[in-house]
Design a binder for these strands. Structure first.
Ligand SMILES: NC(=O)c1ccc[n+]([C@@H]2O[C@H](COP(=O)([O-])OP(=O)(O)OC[C@H]3O[C@@H](n4cnc5c(N)ncnc54)[C@H](O)[C@@H]3O)[C@@H](O)[C@H]2O)c1
Ligand SMILES: NC(=O)c1ccc[n+]([C@@H]2O[C@H](COP(=O)([O-])OP(=O)(O)OC[C@H]3O[C@@H](n4cnc5c(N)ncnc54)[C@H](O)[C@@H]3O)[C@@H](O)[C@H]2O)c1
Lengths: 207, 207
DNA sequence: GCTAACTTGTGAACGAATTCACAAGCCCCC
DNA sequence: GGGGGCTTGTGAATTCGTTCACAAGTTAGC
């Protein structure tokens, strides 16, 4: 298959959100143009994005909302449940662990780890915080798919190495550092400081 | 001035992080190649990024670490302190309000707002949560530069409209919705669900 | 002062992503 | 069953971002 741009995947994700919204409101069909308007893009962009994966619409009519919804879910890989672990039970780990939005989309938190004796053993809605030393052992048994990394920056690379060694192939990192991982492991980073600096730049450089 | 790509600004932000690290370790100069290696890019990319703003290096030698550091800070607009408010004192708002990393880079949280009577009046390290009804009044007096939006999705667009009306020109949004704002207001969104779906796609579509 | 070894800064070439533009297909109505 | 009005799907054109490649400048050593 042709390589798909990251931006395309992000937009599919966005379209899916609108489709679910439309589905709930009982709408039957939608045009590329309506989808584009919601997403702040163009109808050609929507059609091109979809065309990488097949042709799902009817000329003259548009797309069937439930069908397109199903197809995009399939493309993104949301047809199954994903097992997620959180490494680092700090403030941001807490927010994520208690967030309902992830489970709704099939991302289930199956374990939370920390290294601090003060945290280990405490419970957060139905999850007991585990000792990070159990990571390798648990992973071998429970086979999580995705790790969310929310440890301090200094510990991030070392923990990523352990996560990778334990066999996990996808990581969402919140530490504001550039991480190194082998090519078969996908690492995405959420860097809020960088976003704020983007705002600073925009405020500073307006004409 | 020529329009600067978003990707360029993000990389400048990244370079700055490395430069600060080098500065701390007392290094005097650095080449575009060293910077590139840390950032996972190429030396040509580094030089091109910088060239949009001037020429800061010495041929044959490289860049002076403290000077380049200073220049990038200036470009991004970090030469001053930014006043930030948080709208929505929930779980993610709490994590952000208590995060030290922002203040270190000049982003100071000057107020936190919520609509819930249970939250209003409570204190989070030196910040008392204020009633959202004070937003317009406070903003007129305190002139914050940036708003961080951490309210539930349903409330996000309405709150953005109020923030915009109050005169704030930059917003960092955490609600997983597509927001509409006038062109003179910069809105950046952090959408974690989208990142997780990117990982799901990567895991699903490997060869 | 001259040469060798480096490294920057930048047009030009390239490649990727977006937008254009239109033929092909579908529906509805007369 | 034919025409008009819509909307898709997709090559071609365009725009945007990255990489190449090299002249120009700097330092150090002799
Ligand atoms: N809090 C925020 O709003 C925020 C925003 C942006 C980025 N971040 C980043 O997210 C990360 C976590 O931030 P936080 O505010 O939650 O910090 P925190 O200090 O509240 O939490 C970090 C947790 O990680 C645990 N930990 C440390 N080393 C560990 C290890 N080796 N293995 C397992 N657990 C370990 C600590 O015990 C602590 O519980 C940091 O890298 C921070 O820079 C946080
Ligand atoms: N918690 C997470 O990890 C996480 C992750 C991704 C995205 N988000 C998004 O971030 C947003 C906040 O999430 P959260 O988990 O902190 O939710 P939360 O329910 O803990 O917090 C939301 C807060 O906003 C307040 N609020 C509601 N309406 C308001 C209004 N009109 N004005 C001011 N305050 C108002 C509520 O009283 C509450 O305190 C949501 O949009 C959520 O989808 C959260």
């Amino acid at each position: 298959m042709k390589r798909i741009a990251d931006s395309t995947v992000r937009r599919l994700s966005l379209y899916l959100r609108f489709l679910e919204d439309f589905e709930q409101r009982g709408l039957e069909t939608i045009s590329s143009d309506e989808l584009a308007q919601r997403g702040g893009t163009t109808s050609a962009q929507v059609r091109k994005d979809l065309s990488f994966f097949g042709s799902f619409g009817k000329r003259g009519l548009g797309y069937s909302v439930p069908e397109l919804s199903r197809r995009i879910r399939e493309i993104i890989g949301l047809g199954r449940e994903w097992r997620v672990i959180i490494v680092g039970a700090g403030k941001i780990g807490a927010a994520l662990a208690q967030y309902q939005g992830f489970a709704q989309r099939g991302f289930h938190i199956v374990a939370v780890y920390d290294s601090s004796p003060e945290k280990i053993g405490r419970s957060w809605n139905s999850q007991t915080i585990r000792d990070i030393r159990q990571l390798e052992h648990d992973t071998a048994r429970e086979k999580p798919d995705i790790a969310v990394l929310t440890v301090p920056s200094e510990a991030a690379q070392a923990m990523l190495d352990r996560i990778v060694k334990a066999g996990i192939k996808a990581v969402l990192n919140f530490a504001p550092v550039q991480l190194q991982a082998p090519p078969d492991v996908t690492v995405k980073s959420v860097n809020m400081a960088m976003e704020l600096e983007g705002l600073s730049f925009a405020l500073t450089n307006r004409d």
